[in-house]
Design a protein around this nucleic acid. Sequence first.
DNA 1: TGGACGACTTGATCCTGATCAAGTTTGATC
DNA 2: GATCAAACTTGATCAGGATCAAGTCGTCCA
Lengths: 209, 209
Amino acid sequence: MQILTQRQSESDVLLRASAGQTLFWEGDTCTHVYELHSGIVRGVSISKDGERQVTAFFFAGDQIGIPVTPTYRYSAELVTPVSYFRHHHNRWCDVMIDNFRRDGHLLQSIWAEQDPVFRRGMLIGRNGALNRVAALLTLIINRLEPCGQGLKFPLPQIDIASYLAVTPETVCRALKQLRKAEIIDMPSHDRLIIRDFDRLEQAAHSPLA
Amino acid sequence: MQILTQRQSESDVLLRASAGQTLFWEGDTCTHVYELHSGIVRGVSISKDGERQVTAFFFAGDQIGIPVTPTYRYSAELVTPVSYFRHHHNRWCDVMIDNFRRDGHLLQSIWAEQDPVFRRGMLIGRNGALNRVAALLTLIINRLEPCGQGLKFPLPQIDIASYLAVTPETVCRALKQLRKAEIIDMPSHDRLIIRDFDRLEQAAHSPLA
DNA sequence: TGGACGACTTGATCCTGATCAAGTTTGATC
DNA sequence: GATCAAACTTGATCAGGATCAAGTCGTCCA
């Protein structure tokens, strides 16, 4: 999670956008790299047959829209209100190359953006809806903001379902099982309390005990 | 598929390895970028719970092992005998940055390596074993070498199954359906004839007519 | 305050693909 | 060629989720 240094002009301004807006669209020419300061973004791709899939979630600190291709590979839709910095991609590339010349870490930030996509592949390539839901929770709970004694959890189940390649009903039932097993608690739809992290990690790759 | 220019010393030597060998292991420190000259390689990742998954196939012309992280993200196992060039990764990065300064295409080759992984996610995020098998075929047939009136098709069904997140039995049955529908033909396990490409593309995202 | 909409919940049924269990073919080795 | 192991094939059964169909809850807005 490398924060760009030497911000100048536009890059210094903290911008804001509200839930439901889109930072950039799949297929558009890459012009800017977005650096999230707060909030949650979902990456959405449309396959050739028109199927819409959530392929990644991004959180505060993530950089998205890195021009690995001439056009964006996914649309960046705001799950929550978001504040962010916007870097023109020419400038961003210059800074990145300078960093590389200094410390050889040219490519790390690229991987950071690809990582959630890679993780999704490993996740949904395995059996068990409950495993997938538990695994997703373990992956994101350290990216969620605290809220009282728990965490803010603003992800709609419909997005979770798409990311995990199951139906929303299945996500709902999986969360219910985790609640019943007293592994998690959800006082409301957008609050999450981890009651037993160890058993959550177990549930991520084994049937519930 | 950008071929490196200005090969020098080691990079000029065409190396060979036989099926079953491994070019590099997941977790090893990135030292070289491999440029495939012929043959097929599978990318294999092990998830935390020990599950082995084929996450990508690579073919002649592909560059693999690009150091986007300090260590390799997957193991590169040879499906067939392979000939390849091996570039020390420092030299490779230098060449890539020079290319970027010239034509701005710094990052394209990085995406080329990530693309099969991304495609897999989109593929297995959708329903239907038959769809997946048909879709995989459409993706790789233009990378297979001709063989008589058909194509060489050396991918073991067990690898296809892992890549598509289904069982080998299911792959077998799907191929059988495609044969029965006279969309493809397989005179032997390692030969593939496309009888009707249009219907193959349809089968990639619709139930069989 | 009331109403409408979207998200979530719950239950009943169905179906695809996993699993289990034999076979059969293939290819490598001697 | 004979032998063996690995890959592929085929069938029968089973289970996990998808699907379909109502509900309930919450929030936003008039």
